[in-house]
Structures are given as C-alpha cells and as structure tokens.
C-alpha cells in the first residue's frame, strides 16, 4: 500500500472532527486546543525522536517538524519506532508513514538532512518548542548552543544520559533556565559499554514529550 493510500484508509475510518472530539474528551477542550495549535520540531528521529513524535502525535499535536538525515537500520529496531519492513527507508519517510497510521490529521513537515549551525535557525524558526533528540554528544551541544544563542524565543528541551540498565527512576527533567530543559540522568553515556535499551530510552523520550505537553498546558516547571 502506498503512503497516500494508507492515509486514505485511516481517514475513512475517522474524521478530523471525531478525532479532535475524542482527544478533547480525554485532555479537556482548553488544553486540547493548545496542543492542536502547536508546532514542535524534533531534531533527530532515533530512539528519542521517534518516540517523542509518536507520543505527541497521539496527544493530538497540530504540526511536527521532523528532521533526520539517516535511513532505518536493523540496529535501530531495538529501540526506535520503525518496523523491519522499513529497513533502508529514510527515517523521515518511515516515521511519517507510522505517524499517519496513528494520527491521520497530524501535519508533518520533513527535512532529510543534517542540521548544523548554518541551517538550524531557518529549519526551526516556525516551531513553538524544539526537542533535541540526537545521539552524538557533540551534535547535542552544537544544537543547544545555536538554539539558545540565536532563537531565544523558543522553548528548548534536550536530553543527556539514558543508556544502559540503570534505574528508571534516575531519569529526570531539569529546568536550566526559563526556556531550557534537560531530560535524562545526565551521566549514563553509551561509551561506557552500556547499550541503549528501549525502555530507558523511551522513558527519556517520554520526559521530553511530557515537558512539551506541560509547557503547552501552561505548566512551565519541570
């Protein structure tokens, strides 16, 4: 089935109005309106980003800006929201397919490229909230510095430290400044021989997604 045909099937089953009404019933009309009107950028679509996107799409987010240069690999399937049938596809395309099956009316803007200091501002300027979801610590730091220096009106949620089988309870959200939050235990590095385990990465991704929804609901504290 092509992606377009898949979308059509999902949309036949549920109208935009029915979907919105079901979400408003769960979340409250006032909060749902804010979620449905929001644009969130997700930088990196791996274990963090793919899980953040699905959590936000399920919550009825209005628009997602999805950015990743990479293709789905067999080694991603242990923690990232892709299927074996999607190996080899660009993550932007594979995730769009999966999101549209879950939430047919979410608006998606995809960019299959590497974000860097030169293109970040242009790519992210339409977002209300930006999630950092890279794997590489140097890329995490570059994006953090660019966003906090150059796009100062945005909320920015980053992640650091979620590898291994350490306690789930050590993953936290910490508010650093008015608009900057960090999720994770801030110490568990992949380099220490600890692989990334689906459950702990999902917890960290859920912290990022949850902070997005809290901010949209007017709850700015971590």
């Amino acid at each position: 089935m092509t992606e377009e045909a898949g979308k059509a099937v999902q949309r036949d089953k549920v109208s935009r109005e029915e979907m919105y009404a079901a979400l408003a019933l769960r979340h409250g009309e006032k909060i749902q309106k804010k979620i449905s009107n929001a644009t969130v950028a997700i930088c990196g679509l791996g274990g963090l980003g793919s899980n953040i996107a699905i959590a936000l799409a399920r919550a009825g987010i209005g628009r997602l800006i999805l950015i990743d240069f990479d293709r789905v690999d067999i080694t991603n399937l242990n923690r990232q929201q892709y299927k074996a049938s999607q190996i080899g596809m660009y993550k932007t395309e594979a995730l769009s397919e999966n999101l549209k099956e879950i939430a047919p009316y979410v608006e998606l803007e995809t960019h299959t490229l590497r974000i860097d200091e030169d293109n970040a501002v242009k790519l992210l300027q339409d977002a209300d909230i930006i999630c950092e979801a890279f794997d590489n610590p140097e890329c995490k730091a570059v994006l953090t510095n660019v966003v906090l220096e150059k796009i100062t009106d945005k909320y920015f949620i980053a992640a650091s430290g979620m590898a291994g089988l350490g306690s789930a309870n050590n993953i936290k959200t910490r508010k650093i400044t008015d608009k900057f939050y960090i999720c994770g235990d801030e110490v568990s590095d992949v380099k220490d021989g600890m692989g990334l385990i689906s459950s702990r990465v999902m917890i960290c991704a859920a912290h990022e997604a949850h902070m997005v929804l809290r901010i949209l609901a007017g709850e700015a504290e971590a």
Binding site: A163, I182, E186, S188
Partner: peptide, 8 residues
C-alpha cells in the same frame, strides 16, 4: 554547565 553524554 551542561555536559552532554552520548545516546539517543
């Protein structure tokens, strides 16, 4: 000082 570790 926010110091990033790898993984995501």
């Amino acid at each position: 000082v926010v110091s990033f570790v790898g993984g995501g």
